[in-house]
Amino acid sequence: MYAQALNVAEKAHADDPELRARFQARVDAEEKIEPNDWMPEGYRRTLVRQISQHAHSEIVGMLPEGNWITRAPSLKRKAALLAKVQDEGGHGLYLYSAAETLGVSREELVEQLLTGKAKYSSIFNYPTPSWADMGMIGWLVDGAAIMNQIPLCRCSYGPYARAMIRICKEESFHQRQGYEIVMTLAKGSPAQKKMAQDSLNRWWWPALMMFGPSDKDSQHSDQNMAWKIKRFSNDDLRQKFIDATVPQGHFLGLTFPDPDLRFNAATGHWEHGPIDWSEFNRVVRGEGPCNRERLKARQKAHDEGVWVREAALAHAEKRAARKAAAKIAAE
């Protein structure tokens, strides 16, 4: 509520060039912007969009991995997977809290997710038909997320940067855990190795797409770079990920599903074949294998939780009323 009041007050100054210049000078000096500081409306909007998309991705991301919790192949794997998916929920919680510092409530944000107004990472619209996908999500999806997220630990907005520090620590643990699952499969029986290869074939291209469109097609980049919300371009981060990941896959004896993949000794980089952006656009548009399923699962949990949330609220109100009545009686 207070934040809404701030929003109104701030809109009056939205175009004040002096405030904007002072803001930009603080960002340029690597000072952190805090919730009560003046900020351009566009900066606030961009952050709300980005942080809430990230939060939604964590929450929707619980579903594809949650698919294997009851079927994990050993008690150790079961506990580790459950703890991992629980961590994703925890990340969602910190991120919703970081977004709330910008004057938007968790309820509003969840509503935006459920109505399809807000996006989440398209990677979670792919299915997890095999156990190897638990390894591949950790190794590739969390690996790609880390590449994207480490620079966010230095994001100009303080609450987001601080949330990201904690999240990145946990994500790098998840990534190692995922790689270890893939390694166990790659060194296992022929059926297990096949399971790992099949999973890599399915996840490789979607993982590369996680970095977003190529720099020449990206809409938001320049302003976000100036605001230090973003520090590296999509293509640079993608290249970094490929360079780190390809040798890890080869070490396990796995083959990447890209006939054009080759090492360029002159540049020191792995070069990849063309990314099928039409697939990316399709999945973003809602035409991925699991888009409807994922949103329906979230909607179902939300709907089935209504009576629980109402009961908690009703009980809290009853308690408060009883406490107030007892206070009056005592006076």
């Binding site: 929450i59 949650g66 459950l82 179902k300 949990a301 939780g305």
Partner: peptide, 9 residues
């Protein structure tokens, strides 16, 4: 079995 499906985060 509840993981990811709870009534609130």
């Amino acid at each position: 079995e509840w993981c990811g499906h709870g009534p609130m985060l």
